[in-house]
Nucleic acid binder design. Structure first.
Lengths: 230, 230
DNA sequence: GAATCGTACATCGTATACAATCTACACGCC
DNA sequence: GGCGTGTAGATTGTATACGATGTACGATTC
């Protein structure tokens, strides 16, 4: 499996993951300060690896650190949601077009395996899992692209998306639709029809965005603290 | 001004800047390992702030850290140069179009001030300076855009560009042309003609890219170590 | 009573010390 | 001779300890 959990090379890396999950799952609310001492105590480690973890999370855009004051969890800004999905629509088809001709059978096999695991995660309601599986699946299809910078940007956009999409955790119909689209996408990629595949990919991302927009408008308002204009 | 220089809130932040400059200026060659001990000794500090600086530089894409092995300076991959400029061409006009209608007189004044400083830096051959001034100038024009994520991505792309363009340090004609284009761009932005401004911006970025391509082909080959396929 | 100052506490930043891991080279075995 | 093994040195990772900075709150002054 992709979750050995014990094979983190360093404590810092393990703690990054723990805190990241806690933020994504909402166990640390936006605006909430993350005290080094209390985190260190809760993990049973010293503050050093906690500090390094917080720095990494700041680079990922999940927290903001102010010198001598501490780290606070950043909130979800509606502007940013739009921006992230605009960027995905702009960049992912480009990546796919570049990567598709170079994809190997092994790549397709891996994509299908990820899709299968994705299906399992849906059945088991494993919310924490299907978000990252979705990201892995997308990245798997882009991996042969010759655009390393775009690739790393998209990886980070996918992770941000995960944070948003995790809000709609229960959405069974959306998930099964997403999976259907994934399977169709993989199939199309195998045929090598780049144009059609990009089109489908675009539609797929649009659908997810629409799901999210519906979610942002319909239910109760969410907190918007934790991020000032910079 | 935007260069307080002395008021780094922490040692880590100051060291980030020092090491970054050393890499950009080529004092640390690609592929070269950065030992925590020796860096700490050369700055007269302990390894803790050095470690934190290295983590930040990894997030910026200047070094790669392998657990228990250390940090090495990343090299310039030709693929990435293309990628970075493609992304700039894709994203910067979008930002400008969004920001332009909201730009204030103060913003324009600041842009012109930056341009003037840029001119001074050219005269004084202050290579370390004009790269970041160029970035500040571009960002100044984009600052009112409602796309926070794109903004931070472009900021990082501009910094990467700086690394490339710094190779051609001597290029007086390229620099004066760049400055001319900047002034024209600011003027156009003042008129509010978004379409024309974006067109000029695109041409401007294209020109810089061409300068760089010329540089990559003409002179001797550069080292390409320090980055493995990931 | 409002404002300023100052002190105590909480929290962060950095130095020092120790433990864990990696690398290189010598040794022994097949 | 090739190849695994093991040990010493180098380097990184983490814990503990101390100093610096920020914040809250009460005292003092006008």
């Amino acid at each position: 499996m992709t979750k050995p959990l014990l094979v983190h090379r360093t404590l810092s890396a393990a703690i990054v993951e723990r805190i990241r999950q806690d933020i994504l799952d909402g166990r640390h609310a936006p605006g909430q300060p993350l005290r080094q001492d209390s985190l260190a105590a809760s993990f049973g480690v010293s503050r050093i690896p906690v500090r390094e973890a917080l720095f990494q999370l700041e680079a990922e855009g999940l927290v903001r650190i102010e010198p001598h004051k501490g780290a606070i969890v950043l909130g979800l800004v509606p502007d940013e949601v739009d921006d992230v999905f605009d960027l995905r629509l702009l960049l992912e088809p480009r990546l796919l077009a570049s990567s598709l001709p170079r994809l190997t059978d092994a790549d397709f096999a891996e994509a299908q395996a990820l899709d299968a695991t994705f299906g399992d995660a849906i059945e088991q309601q494993d919310i924490a899992r299907w978000g990252e599986l979705n990201a892995e699946l997308h990245l798997c299809l882009y991996r042969r692209a010759t655009q390393p910078r775009t690739l790393s940007i998209v990886a980070s956009l996918l992770q941000s998306s995960e944070r948003y999409t995790r809000l709609q955790l229960g959405g069974l119909p959306e998930l099964t639709r997403a999976r259907r689209e994934h399977r169709a996408l993989i199939k199309l990629c195998r045929t090598g029809d780049s144009k059609a595949a990009c089109k489908l990919l675009t539609a797929h991302i649009e659908e997810v965005r629409k799901d999210l927009q519906r979610l942002f408008q319909a239910p109760k308002r969410r907190a918007r603290k934790g991020r000032s204009a910079s």
